[in-house]
């Protein structure tokens, strides 16, 4: 049961996967249908049997009672997004990912209208060493989607997270720690999958006009349902 309504599921599905397949949206950021769940952003947190858990890593089971659309959980999710904004340097007005950015879209969906926290203003140098891609570490939300994509799809193991707590950060697989010295290519899935403006192709930043971008057209909740894999015979 999700918010009082029954949701079908198949063995092996997580609560989040079952919900999305049933056209029921639960906010999420680090989850991507093509990669193994990671459970780091906690945006998909819901009450499962009275306990707050990440639904992207919780297996769906018969008899589970899940509450997601509650004012309390909406507040928690809004706070989580505010913390992500405060932890990095997310200057949407001049960010080329604006309109295509999941963090921005989640903020809009969840009603984030203020920072909520004191900004940490990190000073993380840009890596522009690669001829076709660049990394703005100040916008990385540590979702590890690039890590998973590089490992599981590209087979290159270019990215990893290092450090702990506030010092946790994205690194690349080169002694110089420069992207240009890795085997990374602009066609890699690791670049396509970045949900924020951290890993970007060079020289095409504003080729798509404002107003024509992914989340300019439909909110992230509707887009996520469009993208959700569904069992055979079920359509969105």
């Amino acid at each position: 049961m999700l918010d009082g309504a029954p949701v079908p599921f198949e063995p092996g599905q997580t609560v989040l996967q079952a919900a999305l397949a049933a056209d029921r949206y639960i906010p999420h950021l680090c989850y991507h249908p093509e990669f193994r769940p990671h459970g780091s952003c906690k945006l998909c947190t819901a009450s499962v049997g009275g306990r707050l858990v990440a639904t992207c890593t919780t297996p769906a089971e018969a008899g589970l009672v899940v509450d997601s659309e509650t004012p309390q959980l909406r507040d928690v999710r809004r706070t989580l997004v505010q913390m992500l904004f405060a932890e990095g340097n997310h200057f949407c007005p001049s960010c080329e990912k604006s309109g295509n950015c999941q963090l921005q879209a989640q903020g809009s969906d969840l009603g984030v209208t203020t920072a909520g926290f004191r900004h940490l203003y990190p000073d993380r140098p840009i890596d522009a060493s690669h001829p076709d891609a660049w990394i703005d570490f100040n916008r990385c939300v540590l979702c590890e989607l690039c890590v998973r994509a590089s490992d599981e799809v590209d087979g290159k193991h270019v990215f990893a997270l290092a450090g702990r707590g506030l010092t946790k950060h994205l690194i690349v697989n080169a002694p110089s720690n420069r992207l240009g010295d890795t085997t990374f290519a602009a066609s890699d899935e690791a670049m396509q999958v970045c949900p924020v403006g951290a890993i970007l192709p060079k020289r095409v930043g504003f080729a798509v006009p404002i107003g024509s971008r992914r989340y300019d057209q439909r909110p992230v909740s509707a887009q996520a349902l469009d993208d959700a894999p569904r069992p055979a015979g079920r359509s969105p």
Binding site: S94, C95, E96, A128, R203, F206
Partner: peptide, 14 residues
């Protein structure tokens, strides 16, 4: 300084 050139026309108009 240090920003990608294609970002500048959007940023600098601020």
């Amino acid at each position: 300084q240090g920003r990608p050139y294609w970002e500048v026309p959007v940023m600098v108009q601020r």
